[in-house]
Design a protein around this nucleic acid. Sequence first.
DNA 1: TAGATTGTTAATCGATTAACAATC
DNA 2: TAGATTGTTAATCGATTAACAATC
Lengths: 213, 213
Amino acid sequence: MKKDQVSKNVVWRMPRYLRKLDELADAGVERVSSTELGRRTGLTPSQIRQDLSCFGEFGQQGYGYNVSSLRAALRRILGMEQNHTAILVGAGRIGQTLLEGFDFSRRGFALLSAFDIRPELTGASVGGVTVRDAAEISGFIRENRVDVAILAVTRAAAQRVADEVIAAGVRAIWNFTEMDIDLRGSGVVIGSVHFSDSLLSLSYHLHEREAAE
Amino acid sequence: MKKDQVSKNVVWRMPRYLRKLDELADAGVERVSSTELGRRTGLTPSQIRQDLSCFGEFGQQGYGYNVSSLRAALRRILGMEQNHTAILVGAGRIGQTLLEGFDFSRRGFALLSAFDIRPELTGASVGGVTVRDAAEISGFIRENRVDVAILAVTRAAAQRVADEVIAAGVRAIWNFTEMDIDLRGSGVVIGSVHFSDSLLSLSYHLHEREAAE
DNA sequence: TAGATTGTTAATCGATTAACAATC
DNA sequence: TAGATTGTTAATCGATTAACAATC
């Protein structure tokens, strides 16, 4: 039975399910049971069935799940068929890595433009995307539908830039700065990639293991 | 009362607490209460006190927490004073971004060396770190104490390289590939940074919001 | 001392797991 | 049909929140 409100944990697991289904599809596998998917993800079959049931009924008793149709369903659920749009703010090291190395279209996103305050970067094309002057950010957002602003600026500029793109009307922020962004109650969606937090969690577990020895 | 086993959620919040304390210390603030820290992190004061109590007693009734001593305690808890060591495997775009842009020493890590299979990259120095031939990985790990192997190779190479560094004796893997690494029951610690999973979660919430309108 | 705030215990809430009827 | 496996309900487990005695 479809759920109205799906928990954060469930949402976090959905991209992982999709990755596994992509792998299965690549390997030419046609059907998969929750038990087999559980084996591959390290989760219990129960949890997988429970998770999927938040969004609808995708399986068949005695058969399991059809790989390609579940895959299609997950892509739909994750909004990958929505032709979302994004701009990148901050064309520094991380920004350029995203422009050149991250396949936005494979995730259903069109990266419309990049912006930077450094004059020497503006006008260039990086990974097929034009870098514009940061002064044009608000105007660009107002003139184009921009769903996501990718924040790859310095810590010092993070909140100011966030305020600007929120005011101009973006619907979400993908945050690569090490700052916690205050959304000012705007209702904008945020997702963060914190390298440092990830390494420090790892460091904790490493230290814990050492202490146990 | 110190806990033996600390939950994943608690561990994930610790780096955030530390970031806030760094900010407070930079701003010259001397003391902070769980209420104030809660306001700044969006968590309940109860949760913060509960989280910290997993590791010991750091506050004082009627006063709160001393910023610099709690900060020092968190750094210790997170293993930042352990002089951990790391190597980078895969000196491509993400790898180079880490070498040039990520301050490992600020997180208590020494980055000893980088490795790549591409001959044109070996011998170079990127961000002050020498890139060696991938054939030398196992030897290097055996001759030096290497706590963490940073995996920044292609999806296709990910599991093979992981197997190699595990066999050679690293204690942890920091995974930047979009693959789930099978640790083969080795007891190695793993932490992952999945750009794609993060964007897809964001995409879900964006789509959900659109559907609600 | 009075006020503030901790650390901890108890209560609540939510998420995971187990069980099983339904059914392909 | 018999076997397999789902979707869902109930039971368990764990995490968050609330309450409060202890105490600075």
